[in-house]
Amino acid sequence: MSNSHEHHHHHHHPARYGKAFAAGIGLNTVFIIIEAVYGFFSDSLALLADAGHNLSDVLGLIIAWAAVLLGKKLPTKKRTYGYKKSSIMAALLNAIILLIAVGAIFLEAVQRFAHPQPVAGKTVMIVAVIGIVINAATALLFMSGREHDLNIRGAFLHMASDALVSLGVVVAGAIILITGWEWLDPVVSILIAAVIFAGTWGLLREAVDLSLDAVPAGIDTDEIKAYLENMPTVLNVHDLHIWGMSTTEAVLTAHIVRSQIEDNDALLEKLEKELHNKFGIEHTTIQIEKGTYACGLAPDHKV
């Protein structure tokens, strides 16, 4: 049972991120205003462009926060699972926004190779240092949750990648001021774009998986099936499905054939508790069968 403790109790995490989101959105909005004002008065296109880029970060944080808040809404007759899936949609949307940002950085770097431009001045570097502090501080607020919640990882990646971009501006700017190597600016941009792409690709892949109701990462279907089949009086387990209701909550449904069904409630209580504690399954639905009829969903290829 190597992975069995990974998901336990993660559904309590998102609640404490309200302050983190509020702080991140507030800090970054102030920073965007500073950048836009400085950029406008110092005629710096680089600063105005970065203010625009930071706006996508605030958008990313708002999307992630909205998903956390929606996830808390109670189920309705129409939406029987509530809005829990919104955290998966937010992670997917954030991955797409990040990939668009990576494409924009890469394109701009390639254009700068073809048409070198004067490098960022001291003002731009000072503002970039402020950017590193604000973005890194915001990223740290989401650091602990990024392992267990894809939506929080999306928020973390947004802020960490922006801190990285600002760091690139400062380092490249400082070296160019000393050496005069103008080509370093686009090279650093391309390297940063590659690093962000590597981080975002995993986020995108996992978000797509969860959108398609794949088994969440860290949950082993074979291990769970073996556990269910090893229960006393269980003859067969079929129509087993495990998927993510949200970025933190897994759902399981299964048909279990038993040789005796008198103590069903005791078994169901035990399974619900142990599937939660050992495998992190939040929501369990089990159909008990006596095996006196041929279940149409018994074959593995039937869904």
Rank of each mutant, 00 (worst) to 15 (best):
H255I: 02
W65P: 05
T138S: 11
G168F: 02
V195G: 08
I25Y: 04
A20I: 06
A137D: 03
T200I: 09
N236L: 12
A155N: 10
L203F: 04
L228P: 09
A226Y: 10
K73T: 10
D222A: 12
H8F: 14
L275W: 02
S86P: 05
D220C: 10
H53G: 06
H241V: 10
A137G: 10
Y83T: 00
I130E: 11
V58D: 07
G218N: 04
I97F: 11
K85E: 05
A91K: 02
A22S: 11
D213Q: 10
D43S: 10
T200D: 11
A172R: 13
K77N: 15
A194M: 13
K273S: 10
D222N: 11
M1L: 12
H12W: 06
G291L: 01
K270I: 09
K273I: 07
G71M: 11
R258S: 07
R16M: 14
R79W: 14
H241A: 08
H13T: 09
E35G: 01
G103N: 04
E108R: 01
A139I: 02
E249M: 06
G291H: 02
I34G: 09
L271M: 06
V237A: 10
R258C: 12
L61Y: 13
P186A: 00
L191I: 10
I196K: 01
V234E: 04
L47C: 04
Q260D: 15
R205P: 03
V195K: 08
L92N: 05
I130R: 00
I286M: 01
P232H: 07
T76C: 05
T284P: 09
A101Q: 07
F41Y: 08
N28Y: 05
M159P: 06
S211W: 10
H11Y: 10
A36W: 11
L70R: 03
H10W: 14
R16K: 14
K72W: 15
L61E: 12
L74P: 13
I62M: 15
I192E: 04
T285Q: 04
S161C: 07
H276C: 12
I132F: 02
S189M: 11
T253R: 07
E35F: 06
H7R: 14
Y38H: 02
G199F: 07
V102W: 07
A294P: 00
E282C: 05
L27P: 05
E108C: 02
N277T: 15
V30I: 15
A217W: 08
S86Q: 06
H12S: 11
P216N: 09
L93M: 13
V257M: 04
A266V: 13
G291A: 06
I286Q: 03
I132C: 04
I242R: 01
F31A: 02
L184A: 06
K73P: 09
C295S: 01
Q287W: 00
F197R: 00
